[in-house]
Nucleic acid binder design. Structure first.
Length: 366
DNA sequence: TCTGGGGTCCTAGGACCC
DNA sequence: TCTGGGGTCCTAGGACCC
């Protein structure tokens, strides 16, 4: 075992990524739809088919139906597909079944989202061959007990394991040994790095780097100048497959929010404030479930050009009661509307900066 | 042709304090 | 009239992820 500055450099990390998760959950619940194109949708409620595709199964992807496209377009591409609304409760409970299995076979797991997790296997296996055997058993156990397939990636850190799990899908398994990392990454697109998205990819392409291998030849100085300290250094290291971040069990959530699409674009304070009051009740409900108090609250406005605006406020003392949320949110919304003469498409509110427990009522602030 | 909803993390500028 | 440098907190916005 090689340890540097308290970081174990010879780790074995497994990344598990459930295949087309929401749609696969629906297939499990409704076996009769298996084999047909399945499209899980977020309906905005604006008109019958307004909204976007959340997840589609592989049969639907053959028609060009991918996450993010409008539902109306998906219906034109495959009118006979099965269209279902998102059922988050179902996916969360199935997710819990999967995570329990992962936890049994790992030193530690880090659940990254409802359908993904990193597992630190360093203490469970001696080498990458044993890790591969264990990953095969875990995949089989998930298939037997939960009834779902997943794709797995094994590497010396989270960054490599994540890319590996994406390498072969669905139902894939990819192992990248430490001495294979550089040649594995070199030909891949820069946006295959989780953390380098569309904008970063475009800027790097303009600077002449199309692949991760080409990115790795750029100097850290140039990258820092272009992207700032944290991101510049990260890009340089990521391109070389370097990632010391540990697998850490995630505790709690950092923010709770709710955002909706308005029935019609509007700048009418009455309509927007009514929506804000409803959102406040919803967020208050989520907050109560988790027994949290917050200090920071924000009004979120998405204008018709899809630009995201925020107006936020920090309470002097933490709170969690509906009155405080609603009063603060409505005040922020009113102030935003006075300052910004824009038409809004969607509105939301978000609370953050949590402290455990009940907090105090702080209506006196307003 | 039309674009959902839930999050995380980082940056930059101004206020304020010592 | 001129007045340094550093740190922290707060707010707004941007990029990214599933």
């Amino acid at each position: 075992m090689v340890i540097l500055n308290g970081i174990n450099l010879s780790r074995i990390i497994l990344h598990i990524d459930m295949d087309y998760f929401f749609a696969q959950c629906e297939e499990r619940e409704h076996p009769e739809i298996k084999g047909r194109p399945v499209v899980v949708c977020v309906y905005s409620g604006r008109s019958e088919d307004s909204g976007a595709v959340s997840t589609s199964n592989y049969e639907a992807r053959k028609f060009g139906i991918r996450a993010g496209i409008p539902i109306s377009r998906a219906k034109k591409l495959a009118p006979d597909a099965v269209f279902l609304p998102v059922n988050m409760e179902l996916y969360r409970s199935i997710s819990d079944e999967v995570m329990e299995i992962l936890r049994e076979h790992s030193d530690r797991i880090e659940q990254e989202s409802v359908d993904e997790a990193y597992c630190d296997m360093t203490g469970k296996v001696h080498d990458f061959d044993e890790a591969k055997e264990l990953a095969i058993r875990i995949k089989q156990e998930i298939k037997n007990k939960v009834g779902l397939t997943c794709s797995a990636g094994i590497g010396p850190n989270k960054l490599v394991a994540k890319i590996a799990s994406d390498f072969q899908k669905p139902d894939g398994l990819t192992v990248v040994m430490p001495d294979e990392v550089l040649q594995f990454l070199a030909p891949l697109k820069i946006t295959d790095l989780s953390g380098a998205g569309k904008k970063t990819g475009e800027r790097l392409n303009e600077l002449g780097a199309m692949t991760i291998g080409e990115l790795s030849k750029m100097s850290a100085e140039d990258l820092v100048r272009e992207f700032g300290q944290a991101k510049g250094i990260w890009l340089k290291q990521a391109s070389q497959g370097i990632d010391a971040s540990p697998v850490v069990e995630r505790t709690g959530t950092g923010q709770i929010g709710r955002i909706i699409t308005l029935k019609e674009n509007t700048n009418q304070p009455g309509i927007i404030l009514d929506a804000v009051s409803e959102l406040s009740e919803n967020v208050h409900g989520k907050l109560k479930d988790r027994e949290l108090s917050f200090r920071s609250i924000a009004f979120i406005a998405i204008s018709t050009d899809l630009k995201i605006h925020t107006k936020s406020h920090l309470l002097a003392t933490p709170a969690n009661d509906l009155d405080t949320i609603r009063t603060a949110a409505r005040r922020l919304a009113r102030a935003f509307l006075e300052e910004n003469p824009v038409m809004l498409r969607r509105v939301g509110i978000r609370v953050a900066d949590f402290v455990e427990g009940k907090g105090q009522k702080t209506l006196g602030e307003f």
